[in-house]
């Protein structure tokens, strides 16, 4: 486990509230996993390419033309809270 590993800071970045029991269990689990994956640091592969698509294929975007999509009503169907056709959320600041 890296010395500066801070489970609270990571949880804040991941936007997941953790209770103290979870903090302790997850720190332990992540410590075990990070220790295992640390094996990769022993590899001398600095000049290797980074693989994104395993077949090495350039990702292709479709033509930028209007196509049929979900209509507004369908798009809002799963909204937890809605007002005047918009998704409604609490204020960003207290």
């Amino acid at each position: 486990m890296p010395k500066d590993f801070d489970i609270q800071a990571i949880a804040k970045l991941a936007l997941i509230e953790l209770n103290s029991e979870e903090e302790s269990k997850l720190s332990e689990d992540l410590g075990i996993i990070l220790e295992h994956v640390d094996a990769l640091s022993t590899l001398s592969i600095d000049d290797s390419d980074m693989t994104i698509h395993p077949l090495g294929i350039e990702l292709e975007l479709r033509e930028d033309t209007v196509q049929d999509g979900l209509d507004h009503k369908e798009s809002m169907r799963n909204a937890p809270d809605e007002k005047d056709g918009f998704f409604q959320v609490p204020p960003s600041m207290d």
Binding site: L15, L18, P80, V89, P90, P91
Partner: peptide, 23 residues
């Protein structure tokens, strides 16, 4: 994130809402 679909757990701010929803 509790905004457009799926579970939402209320919070005072949108960040708190998302953190609680995901928790």
């Amino acid at each position: 994130d509790g905004v457009r679909y799926g579970l939402r757990v209320d919070g005072k701010t949108s960040y708190e809402m998302t953190e609680k929803t995901r928790a």
